[in-house]
Simulated assay, not measured.
Amino acid sequence: MTINTQELNIAFSPCPNDTFVFHALAHGLVPGAPKLNVTYADINITNGLAAEGKGPEVLKISYAALPWALEQYKLLPCGGALGRGCGPLLLTAGGPLAVKRPAGLTGRTIAVPSERSTAYLLFRLWAAQHVPDGIGEIIVMPFDEIMPAVRDGQIDAGLVIHEARFTYSSYGLHMLTDLGSWWEEDTGLPIPLGAIIARRDLDTEAITGWIRSSLQYAWDHPTASRDYVLSHAQELAPEVAKSHIDLYVNEFSMNLGDSGYAAISALLERAAAEGLVPAVDPALLR
């Protein structure tokens, strides 16, 4: 395995959980680690880069995009977002015209942030059980545009992620279902959201060690990353950014463990059975 000991190129989102995890690594605070060249990009973009095999050495992608990436990239056992009580939400407009039962989504237009996202897979798996007559058109839309579009009646329902969990009520929206809660009740497993992957021709053990050291530094110095996190937090209030970190950065960020890998396998196996993703060789996940 080879690795450039001087520089390492990485792409992750500007969301608080990613900037919190990678703050120390990005600022030269991890002994022995190379200089980090960071590209901040929406996960929909990094999913595409990974699928094309044209991305940087290390990427944050959705677990739903792994089937297209695993030939070139290895899943790392740390640094990502996987947990409980942190799933995507399906929202509809409030008021008397709100869709308040799953069957009410039959034939409706739904906005999603990506078709290669865990949120999308969870939505489609849930809909297969709860909307037997089928949903209508699916529109891909930047996640920060979805709630205003639902509020303004441009779409019938929206699938939201990230900090929308904390802010949707301010748009007067109704939560039709918490897809993370549904997944946990249905499987007993945590929710696999965002993965960290690295090119297979690199020293992935070294990269894993650097990421774990960066995360441990963040936990040991919880205020050190504050300015960095808030500077990339897309105008989030400090308390919302903190809630975001508290929810998405947890023990699975340090080590996926057996339950983490089981959750990833369950998601991809179910999605493949529904024809939503290509089947994955389980040996490539570890």
Rank of each mutant, 00 (worst) to 15 (best):
S231M: 05
H232A: 08
H232F: 09
H232N: 14
A233L: 08
Q234G: 01
E235P: 00
E235W: 10
E235K: 05
E235S: 13
L236I: 01
L236R: 12
L236G: 02
A237V: 01
A237I: 01
A237G: 04
P238H: 08
P238I: 08
P238V: 05
P238T: 04
E239G: 01
E239M: 05
V240I: 15
V240Y: 02
A241F: 05
A241Q: 05
K242Y: 00
K242F: 00
K242Q: 15
K242C: 05
H244R: 01
I245A: 00
I245L: 03
D246A: 13
D246V: 00
D246R: 03
L247N: 05
L247G: 02
L247S: 11
V249Q: 11
V249M: 10
V249W: 04
N250R: 04
N250A: 09
N250H: 06
N250W: 05
F252Y: 15
F252D: 13
F252L: 02
F252H: 15
S253G: 11
S253M: 11
M254A: 14
M254C: 08
N255R: 15
N255Y: 11
L256T: 06
L256M: 09
L256D: 02
G257Y: 12
G257C: 07
D258K: 12
D258Y: 00
D258N: 06
D258P: 03
S259L: 08
S259C: 02
S259G: 00
Y261F: 14
Y261M: 15
Y261D: 02
A262C: 04
A262M: 07
A263T: 07
A263K: 12
I264K: 11
I264H: 07
